[in-house]
Every structure is written in structure tokens, then in C-alpha cells.
Amino acid sequence: MSREHGKGMSLIVKTVTRLTVGLILLYGIYIVLHGHLSPGGGFAGGVIIALSFIHLMLAYGKEIALKKLSKPILSLFESIGAITFLSIALLGFSGGYFFLNFISKGKPFKLFSAGIIPFCNIAICLKVGAGLFAIFVVLVLLKFDAENKE
């Protein structure tokens, strides 16, 4: 067994995680992109995306998960999500109102419809996903710090 497999949970958990984590991530992306058509949206999808990384961290240990998505990148994603959301709202001024849905709405129930709402969902997803995972990472790191001191 390689060093990498020395950490985290048992082989069964790791194998199941390896098979499912991609699907969870994909499902999260699906929820985000169909947020304006079906139940869900940026927040729910962002949580699911964050959960897929948390899943990885639980099964394989924090090093592997943080290699995929490190702390600086997380904070970058979070800020970009917030800035994007605000920019979309401010772009509404181009049509005369704050938060105006200034893109053509398209046909209902088509993927490319509803104007700015899918973009808002993506921005929210970045913010929520990165934020939730960052909170989890910070809690884990704090715990490790406390253990190291003892």
C-alpha cells in the first residue's frame, strides 16, 4: 500500500468514494445549471459541490482534498463569486434599474432562458460552494493545530 493510502478511512470507503465523488460533483453542477428550470439553484448546487470535496476529505484525509482545491484558491473563488453577483446586479443599470433582468428571457423551460438568473446561480454556487468547503477546511485545520500544540 502506498503512503497515500496510509491516511484516511478504509479501502472500502475509499473505493466507494472514488466511484461516487465524480457523480456527486456532476449532480451539483446539474442542479446549478438547471436552477431556473427545476427545484434547486445556486445555493443547493453549491452545497452539493462542496459536499463532494468534503466527501473526498473525509475518505482520503485533508492533504489529498486540499491538493485538489487549496485554501488560496477557495478564497479566490469565494471573492469572485461575490463580485460576479454584484456585477450582474450593477449591470442592470444598463437597462435603467439595479438588478434588472437585462438579458432576453428566451422561451420558458429551455436551458438557455430566464436572462440573468442562470448567471446569478453560477455566481451563488461559487460563493456558497467555496465558502462552505472553506468553513469545513478551517474547522479541520484548527483542530489539527490544537492537537499539535498538546
Binding site: 478564497s75 471573492s79 463580485i83 454584484l86 446586479a89 443599470f93 439595479f98
Partner: peptide, 20 residues
């Protein structure tokens, strides 16, 4: 009256630009 939403938007933009 377009300045009204700016009270929230400017401070939020400042906050997020700093963190970025």
C-alpha cells in the same frame, strides 16, 4: 434616485474587492 441602491452596492463592492 439611482443612488439609492448604491449605498449597499458600494460597500459590498469595497468589501469583496478587498478580499479579492
Amino acid at each position: 434616485s439611482h443612488i439609492i441602491p448604491l449605498f449597499v452596492a458600494v460597500s459590498l463592492a469595497g468589501a469583496f474587492l478587498i478580499s479579492l
